[in-house]
């Protein structure tokens, strides 16, 4: 039975698209048949992050409006034969699609795939409503900032009102050193406010920026902490019991020197 999972956040720029691309790739690497759907119509991004932008012929709106068959619009990722992308239209806006269209689209995709990951636009208006219309499950991405958490809280309320069950939380871009210094909200602080289940914590990682620019996702990079975190989330989605990553500090030179001399225990964040 296929699962339709929408990735959303409320606030923009917290990592919805990066999360969709990484989870999609990680699930495909685990042998699942995956399609990533870009529901951010008019602000197409997912294709760039996945490195597939120059292969787009048809898009989601073409499918909905019947200008092409669903199969024609799906772009196959050459690196992972089980991974596909359904790109958004760049020249249209959110009103080109209705929630009913999205439900129908998700149901057709269910027949072909194990996972349908829907990348939601920011906001709480039509685009967001379209993105969650066909969802079985919702993942909410937030960063440890008061504004992002406030928006995530609003989204949790809306997801519950739309009867999409209990959304799960991905806490993105956490910086252990700042948390230790008390300058950043901790995992516990965020979970205390949102009171929903945490499915993963992703550390702030420069690899995200460099890999995004190259159209390669972090889960493909060996040694990337963020990539590792996304792989763990994918395994948790598959029902595996994977312990939460213990994030180590991004150490300064002095820290490394002190550490080498054994003068200070390595700090960790749970």
């Amino acid at each position: 039975m296929a699962r339709v999972i929408t990735i959303t956040s409320g606030k923009g720029g917290v990592g919805k698209t990066t999360t969709t691309a990484n989870l999609g790739t990680a699930l495909a690497m685990q042998g699942q048949r995956v399609v990533a759907v870009d529901a951010d119509i008019g602000l197409r991004n997912l294709d760039v992050v996945m490195g597939l932008e120059n292969r787009i012929v048809y898009d989601l709106v073409d499918v909905v409006e019947g200008r092409c068959r669903l199969r024609q619009a799906l772009i196959k990722d050459k690196r992972f034969p089980e991974l596909f992308l359904l790109p958004a239209a760049q020249t249209r806006d959110k009103d080109a699609v209705s929630p009913e269209d999205m439900i129908e689209l998700c149901n057709s995709l269910r027949r072909e795939f194990d996972f349908v990951l829907v990348d939601s636009p920011a906001g709480i208006e039509g685009g967001f409503r379209n993105a969650i219309a066909g969802a079985d499950e919702v993942l909410i991405v937030t960063t440890p900032e008061v504004s992002a958490v406030r928006d995530a809280d609003r989204i949790v309320g809306l997801v519950e009102a739309f009867e999409k069950g209990h959304p799960r939380l991905i806490l993105n871009r956490i910086r252990p050193q700042m948390v230790n210094r008390g300058e950043m909200m901790s995992k516990e602080d965020v979970v205390e406010i949102l009171a929903i289940d945490l499915i993963g914590v992703v550390p702030d990682d420069e690899v995200i920026v460099t890999s995004t620019n190259r159209g390669e996702v972090a889960v493909m990079q060996k040694g990337s902490q963020a990539g590792r975190a996304y792989t763990d989330i994918a395994r948790r989605l598959l029902g595996e019991d994977v312990p939460m990553l213990v994030l180590t500090d991004d150490q300064s030179l002095l820290d490394k020197f002190m550490g080498a001399l054994g003068l200070r225990p390595r700090r960790t964040v749970r």
Partner: peptide, 13 residues
């Protein structure tokens, strides 16, 4: 009649 609500009130509600 008083009203009792047993849930979290979230932002915007």
């Amino acid at each position: 009649a008083a009203l009792m609500v047993a849930r979290t009130l979230r932002s915007g509600q």
